[in-house]
Nucleic acid binder design. Structure first.
Length: 595
RNA sequence: GUCCCCAUAGUUCAACGGAUAGAACGAAGGUUUCCUAAACCUUUGAUGUAGGUUCGAUUCCUACUGGGGAUACCA
């Protein structure tokens, strides 16, 4: 890596010129801004005091020194306290050669002997189909897993399905009352949508009952508690917990419908899991941990029998861990499942992709696990992401303002088809490949749109604007990739001369810009992985595509007079294609060879 | 009440404490004898307010304003 050599040389230069001790790693390099000449820049301000020199003079002296120490540096210039280095063309040529000789430049292979990182994402409830919020979760989870893999980590993806609780009882009850035995087969509906329909149905009737009670003089709160439907649902939950066969059978059947539906949606989204946990299996876990915590004295019991953890010394509140009747709560289960995963996978690194409304929950989880004696819990990482908002406000299932995942994907596909037809493209493709292409483009648009935004931020999803294939979008990158592949194909026909890295080329500014971006790929992946941020990868991929298009515009590639120069540029195209493919792959986006 | 997150062009998004704050969409104009014009090039326009730290602040600290979330014996 040229950066390391530069850091080393600068460190040595500082020592020799001014007797300043600076660790090579502590020397921060940045890319030189476009308006200045150079490839890398170092800011000398931090050392001017120690060196007792004016910034300009110091930068000049240090530049000269580094130039002497490092043959790759062919030139340096100083501008105020900014010292710019120009790296010689031979370095860039050897970089290009290296990229072409590597399958997945910039990515590392995972060491399978190492303990894996376990990443939980998706975690749906089984009473309704997936919506836009789940899409962000799923895409983030999948992408971060790919990102960590690309950074050389051993990764396992898990899903914790929330398949029990009052919500599914509501759907079951409504189905028993109003369903007339309707099934996915008889209704032609996807299973998750069918169950979701009865969840809505429940809510409708339940609201009516509450209103009726309030008309009879009940307080709202009391009416909500005593409406016959909710009372019935609660008694069903009790029967379910006692193992009542009728309840269990109905529950299994309806959950089965939902899983089939989810599988379809996951498949369309291109996500998957190594292991799926069901809450019905795990909801009793964690109680032993609580007993252990009581013995250790890190938890305490109130007079009514409920168990708590005092987190006031950590700036938090008291947190309930067991109800007074001895049953577990959400937190108890998560303590149990964390330990379960630690045992299942031998992992000490857990990542949870969960919305930011649960920031508090995961803060507590981490602390409590540590207090229970699991030091590895400090590695628990909550990948907290913001809400997806719609132009007219928040998504509310009751108000019908949710964007259904399946509908959205279909809509995107239809739009992709429309766009392709308008442009009159791909006349030479058969119907099957075309359908696959529409899907690829639609998902590319959707995934990129969501992943390019920093996970922590709330984002606005405008259904109309999202289906835009211009500008900073997935299809723009896909299209750039397809064009490059086309150029490379033509290049191969036009000349069979292999790229000769020993021949001297004049590398122009546009070529340099592209090469520089290619060079940055490994460090970009490392940074993005450290930040768990696919957004950095997305924006990087876009800048590569953008730089390529700009480079292509005024640099002849196929019509080069010089055979060797042409093969050099075609080779550069191949390298860009590889970078685009590998980065898009991290985002879970396919790149088509033709479109 | 307490705690957490967010605030950047008209809009949607960028910017390890570094140089003149970048893109895209929108608006106005231009470009095709290399691939596939879903492209390229011009022009337009922004750091919520007030302080502080620093050679240097969109970035770090404090207060305020505005938005979101959490603070459930729900999950």
């Amino acid at each position: 890596m040229i950066e390391e050599k530069l850091q080393q040389a600068i460190s040595q230069g500082l020592k020799e010129l001014y007797d300043i001790d600076a660790e090579p790693k502590s020397v921060t390099l940045q890319s030189t801004r476009k308006d200045f000449i150079g490839d890398f820049t170092v800011v000398v301000f931090p050392w001017v005091k120690q060196a007792r020199k004016a910034p300009q003079q110091m930068a000049e002296e240090l530049g000269k020194k580094v130039h002497e120490l490092l043959p790759e540096v062919v030139e340096s210039n100083a501008e105020k306290g900014f010292l710019n280095f120009v790296i010689g063309d031979s370095y860039w040529q050897s970089l290009l050669k290296e990229v072409l000789a590597t399958d997945a430049y910039g990515t590392k292979n995972a060491d399978s002997s190492e303990a894996p990182i376990v990443i939980e994402y998706s975690s749906p409830n089984t009473n309704k189909p997936l919506h836009l919020g789940h899409i962000r979760n799923n895409l983030l989870g999948w992408s971060v897993a790919q990102l960590l893999k690309a950074n050389g980590n051993n990764v396992r993806m898990v899903n914790l399905v929330n398949d029990r609780g009052i919500h599914i009882m509501k759907s079951m009850l409504a189905w028993m009352r109003y369903g007339n035995g309707e099934t996915p087969e008889t209704s032609g509906m996807k299973g998750d949508h069918l169950v979701g329909k009865y969840y809505v149905e429940f809510d409708k009737h339940y609201k009516k009952e509450v209103e009726d009670l309030m008309a009879k003089g009940y307080e709202e709160e009391q009416a909500k508690k005593e409406a016959p439907l909710i009372v019935e649902a609660q008694s069903m939950l009790k029967r379910w917990e006692e193992g009542d066969k009728e309840m269990r059978d109905l529950w299994s059947m309806m959950n089965g419908w939902v899983y089939k539906g989810f599988d379809e949606t996951y498949k369309r989204l291109g996500v998957g899991f190594d292991k799926i946990y069901y809450e019905s299996d795990t909801y009793l876990l964690g109680k032993e941990l609580v007993s252990k915590g009581l013995e250790m004295g890190v938890l305490y019991k109130k007079e009514d029998g409920s168990v708590w953890c005092d987190l006031t010394d950590a700036g938090l509140d008291h947190k309930l861990l067991l109800r007074k009747d001895g049953t577990s709560v959400y937190m108890t289960q998560d303590l149990g499942t964390a330990l379960l995963r630690h045992e299942d996978f031998g992992t000490e690194r857990l990542v949870y992709v969960v919305g930011n409304e649960q920031d508090y929950h995961f803060q507590v989880l981490k602390i409590v696990m540590q207090r229970l004696g699991y030091q590895w819990a400090e590695n628990i990482y909550h990948l907290s992401y913001g809400m997806v908002e719609l132009p007219n406000g928040k998504m509310k299932s009751r108000e019908g303002t949710v964007v259904d995942a399946d509908d959205l994907i279909s809509e995107m596909e239809a739009q992709a088809k429309e766009m392709c037809r308008e442009k009159g493209k791909n006349c030479d493709m058969d119907e099957t490949s075309l359908e696959a292409l529409y899907h690829t483009i639609a998902l590319g648009a959707l995934k990129y749109f969501i992943l390019k935004v920093d996970p922590t931020r709330n984002m606005l999803f405008n259904p109309a604007e999202s289906i835009d294939f211009n500008g900073n979008t997935g299809p723009f990158i896909q299209y750039t990739y397809a064009r490059i592949k086309s150029i490379v194909r033509k290049g191969a026909e036009a000349n069979a001369v292999a790229f000769d890295e020993t021949a001297s080329q004049v590398i122009g500014p546009k070529e340099k810009e592209v090469l520089r971006l290619i060079h940055d790929m490994p460090s970009t992946i490392a940074q993005a992985a450290a930040a768990y941020s696919p957004a950095q990868i997305a924006n990087y991929a876009y800048s590569v595509a953008k730089a390529f298009n700009s480079f292509y515009q005024d640099t002849p590639i196929l019509k080069c007079e010089n055979d060797n120069l042409r093969s050099f540029r075609v080779a550069l195209c191949s390298a860009v294609a590889q970078v685009l493919k590998n980065t898009m792959n991290i985002l879970g986006i396919e790149v088509p060879e033709r479109m």
